[in-house]
Simulated scan of single mutants.
Amino acid sequence: MNQINIKPVPVELVGETLMNISPLYLLSTVASKLPIAVLLDVKGRIGDWLASGGKETDPYIWQQVAYAQKVYATMRGGEKG
């Protein structure tokens, strides 16, 4: 039997990778599960921000993603309010 030698990934690299996740990628993970009104609102706000010169990683974008995730969690019966 052949053994596979898998080396663990250093914790520092895992944390670094997680910190580099795009907020728009995170939004895409819940977008199809959101009510259309919520998705259109978040998309419009993000689009306006980017069109005005904002960056994809600005705190405002993270705020919009957090809102979308909160709506999704509430829909699933998780977080209330």
Rank of each mutant, 00 (worst) to 15 (best):
A68D: 03
Q3S: 08
D58N: 15
P59D: 13
P23I: 09
E56I: 13
I6H: 04
G44N: 15
L34Y: 01
S28P: 04
A51E: 15
S22P: 08
M19A: 15
K7M: 12
P10S: 04
P23F: 10
V65W: 02
I61V: 15
N2D: 14
L39P: 11
I61W: 11
Y25P: 05
M19V: 11
Q3W: 01
I6V: 08
Q63N: 14
L34V: 05
R45Q: 14
P10F: 01
Y25W: 05
W62H: 12
Q64T: 00
Q63Y: 07
V14S: 07
W49M: 02
D41P: 11
T17E: 11
I21R: 06
Q69E: 09
W62M: 11
P23Y: 09
N5Q: 14
I36H: 03
M1K: 08
G44A: 11
A51F: 14
L39F: 14
I61C: 09
R76I: 02
N2H: 13
G78K: 00
I46G: 07
M1H: 12
L27V: 02
M19I: 12
Y67H: 14
K80D: 09
S22C: 10
V42R: 10
E12A: 12
V30Q: 03
K43V: 12
L40Q: 15
L18A: 12
I6W: 08
M19W: 05
Q64V: 03
P23V: 05
A66K: 06
V9K: 13
I46N: 08
Y60H: 12
G78W: 02
Q69S: 10
Y67R: 12
W62L: 05
K7A: 13
S28C: 01
P23D: 11
E56V: 14
W49V: 02
M75E: 00
L27N: 05
P8N: 05
G77F: 00
L34E: 01
D48W: 01
R76M: 13
L39I: 07
